[in-house]
């Protein structure tokens, strides 16, 4: 069973969850972009005129955006179940940070959809 102090510690960590997820998405997308370019996945088209490189990056981006949304939904549900004013404040701050991180991911990773992935 989680006591109040441990619960508060986890709650404090959840403040960084949104942008932590953003950072993990950054590393994953950057790594897969480099791997795809090294293996020539950007050449040719696989489905609907999209290359394997574009598809795998879009899939990865989709997974991370879904995780962002799940985090926001999860924090919203927890906020409604908060007992004390402090918990409600922390949940609210964590939820808003998670929403900001979702917006940041959509903004910074839109290049995955738009830009040339590898040097021609």
């Amino acid at each position: 069973m989680i006591d109040a102090t441990s619960g508060r510690k986890i709650l404090l960590l959840s403040l960084a969850a949104g942008f932590g997820l953003w950072a993990v998405a950054f590393v994953a997308l950057y790594a897969m972009l480099s791997i795809g370019c090294a293996f020539g996945w950007d050449r040719g088209s696989l489905v609907l005129g999209l290359s394997l490189q574009r598809l795998q990056l879009l899939l990865l981006l989709g997974i991370f955006l879904a995780l962002h949304v799940a985090l926001v939904v999860g924090l919203s549900a927890r906020q409604q179940r908060s007992d004390t004013a402090t918990d409600r404040f922390l949940h609210s701050a964590a939820r808003l940070a998670a929403i900001a991180a979702l917006a940041a991911s959509m903004f910074t990773y839109c290049g995955t959809v738009l830009l040339t992935t590898c040097n021609p």
Partner: peptide, 12 residues
């Protein structure tokens, strides 16, 4: 940055 980055790609 996106626009300039695309222009700087070494397309022949």
């Amino acid at each position: 940055a996106f626009t300039l980055g695309e222009r700087l790609l070494p397309r022949q």
